[in-house]
Design a protein around this nucleic acid. Structure first.
Lengths: 144, 144
DNA sequence: TGATATATTGATATTGATTATCATTATCTG
DNA sequence: CAGATAATGATAATCAATATCAATATATCA
């Protein structure tokens, strides 16, 4: 079974917080790790139900929170108001290009922009903890 | 009475869409223009009620949408999930520094970052329509 | 000006996403 | 294995935002 590192991280997190393992959590983690990125809660719930139909939405919500807290994934809140979750472990930091026509999501990163952000914040006395950069526009396909 | 330009914009918008003027819309516009930026719907509703207690929340929601469509203001959706509205007319484009401790909002702009964003998008075949850049961190005050 | 068509309002219901509650069940620890 | 308690799933509650609808206000035209 793959994703040993991620499972170890979750395992350690569960223990460090004196929480318990459960069949459901392991199943949800398994499905989440195998899935593509940028899943909504509903999408994940549907995938999980294929494996275990008795797992409820509430459990998926609760478990995703644990994933976030453990550092396995992060919430992505785009302008459409729908919260998506994307893998974090083993993935470089990145920002997003969002196609406003087809909804395509492209991950991008630019070290120079990051540097200038730091500088900009510093010049206003801020110390950055995190940032959010989303570029909304049309992708090549949708313009042709 | 100040803000003639903004009122003319709204007036023109209303006419162009074959909508109607109303006492309530004018009162809400007046209060909005006088207020500081970054108002939530609830905050604006409270301010408006001081002038006309009968104005309901729904009308404030509806009217703010008109303001956005007319170009007078824009929605600002930060990570806390609360939608704020900020003045647009007569204000330069800007991004935001957000203090995660005290909630302070600082407006910033960096032409070089904007330029690099364009370039980054272009290199992936995207044509940018809008962007969102928020830098979360701690302000000087909160660190001392 | 007055009648008519229709946009607007405010109260309330509804939606959709998320969180809280709670009785039942499962897991861990000794 | 037993006891303590965390987790689950169903459901209710919450919260922001939107839709509905009867009553009212506004614009237009005769």
């Amino acid at each position: 079974m793959a994703h040993q590192k991620e499972k170890a991280i979750f395992h350690d997190y569960i223990h460090s917080k004196n929480l318990r393992h459960s069949e459901q959590r392991m199943q949800i983690l398994d499905v989440f790790l195998k899935a593509e990125r940028h899943l909504t809660v509903e999408e994940l719930h549907k995938l999980v139900q294929k494996k275990n139909p008795s797992i409820g939405m509430a459990t998926v919500y609760r478990t995703l929170k644990l994933f976030v807290d453990s550092g396995l994934c992060r919430e992505l809140k785009l302008n459409d108001g729908i919260t998506r979750y994307e893998h974090l472990y083993g993935h470089e930091h990145h920002d997003h290009l969002v196609c406003t026509q087809c909804g395509a999501l492209v991950e991008v990163c630019d070290a120079e922009i990051e540097r200038l952000q730091e500088k900009l914040a510093r010049s206003h006395g801020f110390k950055i903890q995190s940032h959010k950069l989303e570029l909304y526009g049309t992708c090549k396909k949708c313009r042709h």
